[in-house]
């Protein structure tokens, strides 16, 4: 048995020594061509695997959702009527606010550069860290915002290799974004993730009026993150008599699980 243990430890020690050597090569960037070759070879398979998994997930999700369609349909019809009224009012306001629109930093084709990327996976033990198939060679750097569609922020780049990058989704508890609310007081605060379940916006002064469904956007106070990227909508407020601040629970506009294609804004 002693011989067995010795043999066990010998092979393990050799492999750990090899790994330490590879770590050294990685740190001095000698392994970069090999790493990039591996990424290029595996990326198409990862795209296929991620899309296939997403389709399977959507299929089962739609089966579960079908049960709730009737009541959801009625609620949506009522919401449509309210939206028609609000839409009319907004069209009037839009004409009056053309000047203010220039200050809002929504993504426009002629204003920002961006890199379109596919999500190819997630970090092994953290489902709030997504892996995208673009990296430093595409101009991506740490701190750049990751958006969906035409300006919905979903996360921030936290690590960029040559060919792939890692983005932390907003609903992770390590995520913190400077934000503001589109209300009369233009309330400023910090949006944090809550254990991958929801978002909360803290440090909101108690004397400011915040309503349900107020839109939360990036405030532009962080470098590399432009003002005006949509984060979510206020769901409800949490206040306590002893606190100086109130906290808003924010719902993201879209489900982060259903996203396949994203854009990284390159300032």
């Amino acid at each position: 048995m002693k011989l067995n243990i010795l043999k066990t430890l010998k092979l393990s020690s050799v492999l750990i020594a090899v790994i330490l050597l590879l770590i050294f090569f990685h740190l001095i960037n000698i392994l970069n061509p090999v790493e990039n070759l591996v990424y290029r070879m595996i990326n198409p398979l990862q795209n296929f695997a991620y899309i296939t998994g997403g389709k399977i997930n959507n299929y089962f999700q739609s089966k579960a959702d079908a049960k709730n369609l009737d009541s959801e349909n009625n609620a949506l019809k009522s919401q449509i009527n309210d939206l028609i009224i609000e839409n009319t009012r907004l069209k009037i306001i839009e004409k009056e606010n053309e000047n203010l629109k220039a200050e809002l930093s929504f993504i426009e084709n002629n204003k920002y550069n961006y890199a379109i990327a596919r999500i190819i996976g997630e970090n092994i033990d953290n489902q709030s860290i997504i892996i995208i198939n673009k990296g430093k060679l595409d101009g991506i750097k740490i701190g750049y915002p990751v958006v969906f569609g035409n300006g919905i922020m979903i996360g921030k780049i936290i690590k960029a290799n040559d060919s792939i990058s890692f983005a932390l989704l907003l609903n992770d508890s390590q995520s913190k974004i400077a934000a503001s609310i589109l209300n009369t007081d233009n309330s400023m605060g910090v949006v944090e993730g809550e254990y991958k379940l929801s978002l909360k916006m803290g440090l909101l002064p108690k004397n400011q009026t915040i309503n349900q469904d107020d839109i939360v956007i990036t405030s532009g106070l962080e470098s590399n993150i432009p003002k005006g990227l949509v984060i979510g909508k206020v769901n409800r407020l949490q206040t306590s008599t002893n606190d100086l601040f109130q906290t808003a629970i924010v719902n993201p506009i879209i489900s982060y699980e259903s996203i396949n294609l994203v854009a990284v804004i390159i300032p």
Binding site: I42, Q46, Y50, G53, I56, G121, E122, I131, E257
Partner: peptide, 25 residues
């Protein structure tokens, strides 16, 4: 190695919670 890695990194996460907690590797 190849199939296991692709499954773990790309396929399982896209299946959503709770399947994405499986550590196939």
């Amino acid at each position: 190695l190849l199939i296991g890695s692709i499954f773990q990194i790309s396929f399982l996460p896209s299946l959503g919670y709770p399947i994405d907690n499986l550590n196939l590797i």
